[in-house]
């Protein structure tokens, strides 16, 4: 059976989280998190795909092909907004933290630990 897109989504997730786990820079952290986020888009979109399908816009469907599932596309859009919202906040935090400590390295002795 063909599950390649799902496995690619899994790969994106793990690679993105690897970036988060090994990060030495807050900007890199946000980028890695976004890579991980994109795995969600891919998983949802490939779940709803139909072989030979077209976009779910009915005046443009070719004869003999079926439109793909529109629901997962709507869900994906919501998830993209989530990603944008979270990124904006994390970047804002990183920028202010940079002004405090002069470094973007999250490994510097954090004030909250132990």
């Amino acid at each position: 059976m063909n599950m390649l897109p799902f496995l690619v989504a899994l790969w994106l997730l793990l690679v993105g989280l690897y970036g988060v786990s090994a990060t030495k820079n807050s900007i890199h952290l946000v980028s890695s998190l976004f890579v991980a986020q994109s795995s969600g888009y891919l998983l949802l979109l490939s779940l709803g795909y139909l072989k030979g399908g077209t976009a779910p816009i009915l005046d443009q469907v070719r004869v003999g092909s079926r439109p793909v599932d529109p629901v997962v596309q709507a869900l994906t859009m919501t998830d993209i907004v989530v990603g944008a919202a979270v990124s904006a906040l994390i970047l804002a935090c990183a920028l202010q933290a940079f002004k405090k400590s002069g470094t973007l390295d999250p490994r510097r002795t954090p004030p909250m630990r132990g």
Binding site: V20, A36, Q37, V82, P110, M112
Partner: peptide, 20 residues
């Protein structure tokens, strides 16, 4: 700032699991 950053990253990862 550090607290918010850790909170945001961990919960986003959690949200991603919910999405999966």
């Amino acid at each position: 700032l550090e607290g918010a950053l850790n909170f945001a990253v961990m919960n986003s990862i959690g949200g991603l699991m919910v999405l999966f």
